[in-house]
Design a protein around this nucleic acid. Structure first.
Length: 423
RNA sequence: GGAGAAAUGGCAGAGUGGUCGAUUGCGGCAGUCUUGAAAACUGUUGAGGGUUACACCUCCUGGGGUUCGAAUCCCUAUUUCUCCGCCA
C-alpha cells in the first residue's frame, strides 16, 4: 500500500511511475487526496468537540466534589448534546477512512524507475544469461515421460489421493527433493540467513500484511471453518514475523530463510503450461527474505540476485535473468528479477525464482518500521526471493541431465542424495 | 472438549470510575565523573493523527456497551496460564 504522505507530496510522480505498470492512477489518487482533505477536516472538528467534552467532564467532577449538584447536572446536559454531534462526526470519519482505505488497497506499488515499460512477458528485459544449453541425444524425453519411465513421479496417484496438481514423488526423486531442500537451506544459512520453520497456515492479518489479501483471495486455499489460509509462499509467514515491529536501525538488514510447502489454487491455468511439474497446486520451496534499510535495499536486491545465480551455477543449470517489465510485475513489487532455467527437452525457459524489492509497499501494511534514539520511526523495505522452487528445478534437471543410462546428479548435490545416477 | 484465572509501554510490574498516556524497577539514549570503561549520580525515553510550531485528539489484546467521565464496570471475540479429559 502506498503511503499517504508520498501521494500527498508526489502525486505527479506517483502517476508517472504507476503508468509504467499500465495503471492509470490519476482519478483514484485524486479521489484519495480529496478524501484525505475531508478526513482531516472532519477529524479536526471531532477533536475540538472531544476536547470540549473532556473539559466539561472534568468540571462536572470538580462540581460534584464541591457538592454543587445543580450546576453539575446542567453541565451534564450540555455534555450529552456534545456527545450526539461527536458521535455523528466520528461515524463520518470512520466512513471516510474506510472509503480511502478501500481505494488505497487497489493501487499497485509504484515501480522503480529502472523498470522497463511494457505489457507482456515479451517485453521483459533479458539482463543476463549463463551456462550452456545442453544438446540432447535423439530420443530424449520431457520430464513427465522420464518420470514414468523410471517410476519417479506418479501424477495419477496424486489425482486419486487429492486431485490434479498434487503429484506423488517416489524413490530417488523423493530423495532428490529432500536433497535439494537441504542443499538450499545449508547454502542460505552459510550466506547469513536465519533458518525459520514457520506455520504453513496463516490468518487474515498475515495475508493482508504481505498483500495476498484482499485482492488475491481466490488464489489461496481457504480453510473457512477456522478462517485460515494455506500459504502460497513462505514469504507470507516469514515476512509477517515482523508485522507491527519497530526494529533498531543497527539490526538491519534482517535475513531469514525457510523451507515450506506452498499451495496455489491456480484458478484459470490450463493447457501445456500445467503439464507435468510445470505448474502445481502444491510444491516445495526455500524462500529468502530480507528486511532492509531504504537506502540499501537495491544493493540488497543485487546481493539476492547474485545469491540465486550462484545456486543455479552450483546445480549446473543454464539460466537467464529477466528484469520484469511494468506489465508483467506483481501488484506489490517495485522491481523484480525472474530467473529462468532452460528445460532442454521441452525447449523452453521455466521460471524458477523471482526476486523482488517491495520497498515500503508491504512494510506500510505490516507497520514494520525502524528507528534509533529519538528519531521518528520509518518504514523499512522488504525483499524476498525463491531460492529456489523445487518442481521446475527437478523438471529441468531430469531433462537436461538425462542420458541413455539414466539421469545424472550434479556434483554439488551428490553429498545430499547419496547417489549420482537416477535409473 | 469441560472448569477456573488472566491480558497494561522494549521487558517486569503498580494501578478497581474523575489532572492516568498511565507509579516504579530493569533496559535504551544523553550527560557528570574517569586516561578509557564499569559503578554511582543527573536528565531523558511508547505509537498514531493534527499543527509552520504549539495546542489538541486517539490508543492500557480486538470489537461493542454503561456513564457527564472508563485502564478501572458490563457483554463479546481472541490469546495465555492452571486443573480435568483426549492424544502424535
Amino acid at each position: 500500500m502506498l503511503q499517504l504522505n508520498y501521494i500527498r507530496e508526489n502525486k505527479e510522480e506517483a502517476i508517472e511511475r504507476l503508468a509504467i505498470k499500465n495503471f492509470d492512477a490519476k482519478a483514484i489518487l485524486e479521489q484519495v487526496l480529496e478524501l484525505d482533505n475531508d478526513r482531516r477536516k472532519t477529524q479536526n472538528e471531532l477533536d475540538s468537540l472531544l476536547n470540549e467534552a473532556n473539559i466539561i467532564a472534568k468540571q462536572v467532577g470538580d462540581l460534584f466534589k464541591q457538592g454543587k449538584k445543580a450546576e453539575a447536572d446542567e453541565l451534564k446536559n450540555k455534555s450529552v448534546a456534545l456527545k450526539e454531534s461527536s458521535n455523528k462526526l466520528s461515524e463520518q470519519l470512520k466512513s471516510i477512512e474506510e472509503q480511502q482505505h478501500k481505494l488505497l488497497v487497489q493501487v499497485p506499488n509504484t515501480p522503480s524507475f529502472k523498470v522497463p515499460k511494457g505489457k507482456t512477458p515479451a517485453d521483459n528485459e533479458n539482463v543476463y544469461q549463463e551456462g550452456e544449453i545442453p544438446k540432447l541425444y535423439s530420443g530424449a524425453k520431457p520430464h513427465w515421460e522420464l518420470a514414468e519411465q523410471y517410476d519417479l513421479i506418479d501424477f495419477e496417484l496424486g489425482v486419486k489421493l487429492t486431485g490434479a496438481g498434487f503429484p506423488v514423488y517416489k524413490g530417488k526423486v523423493a530423495r532428490l527433493q529432500r536433497a535439494l531442500i537441504n542443499f538450499f537451506l545449508d547454502k542460505a544459512t552459510a550466506a547469513g540467513y536465519l533458518e525459520v520453520q514457520p506455520p504453513i497456515m496463516v490468518n487474515e492479518a498475515s495475508g493482508y500484511g504481505t498483500g495476498q489479501l484482499p485482492d488475491k483471495e481466490g488464489q489461496m486455499y481457504h480453510a473457512t471453518i477456522d478462517n485460515l489460509y494455506l500459504i502460497p509462499t513462505a514469504e507470507v509467514p516469514i515476512t509477517n514475523i515482523y508485522r507491527d515491529v519497530i526494529v533498531k536501525t543497527n539490526q538491519l538488514p534482517i535475513k531469514m530463510c525457510g523451507y515450506t510447502p506452498c499451495f496455489r489454487r491456480e484458478a484459470g491455468s490450463y493447457g501445456k503450461d500445467v503439464r507435468g511439474l510445470n505448474r502445481l497446486h502444491q510444491f516445495d520451496k526455500v524462500e529468502i527474505v530480507q528486511i532492509a534499510h531504504p537506502d540499501k535495499s537495491y544493493d540488497t536486491l543485487e546481493d539476492m540476485r547474485n545469491y540465486v545465480a550462484g545456486l543455479l551455477r552450483d546445480l549446473e543449470l543454464p539460466f537467464r535473468i529477466l528484469k520484469l517489465c511494468g506489465g508483467d510485475m506483481s501488484f506489490g513489487s517495485a522491481l523484480t528479477y525472474d530467473f529462468e532455467t532452460f528445460s532442454a527437452a521441452q525447449e523452453k525457459w521455466l521460471e524458477v525464482s523471482s526476486v523482488s524489492n517491495f520497498e515500503t509497499f508491504q512494510s506500510n501494511r505490516l507497520k514494520l518500521r525502524f528507528k534509533d534514539g529519538d528519531t521518528k520511526a520509518q518504514l523499512t523495505h522488504t525483499l524476498n526471493g525463491s531460492a529456489l522452487a523445487l518442481p521446475r528445478i527437478v523438471a529441468t534437471m531430469l531433462e537436461n541431465f538425462q542420458t541413455p543410462e539414466g539421469i545424472r546428479v550434479p556434483k554439488a548435490l551428490i553429498p545430499y542424495t547419496g547417489f549420482d545416477l537416477i535409473n
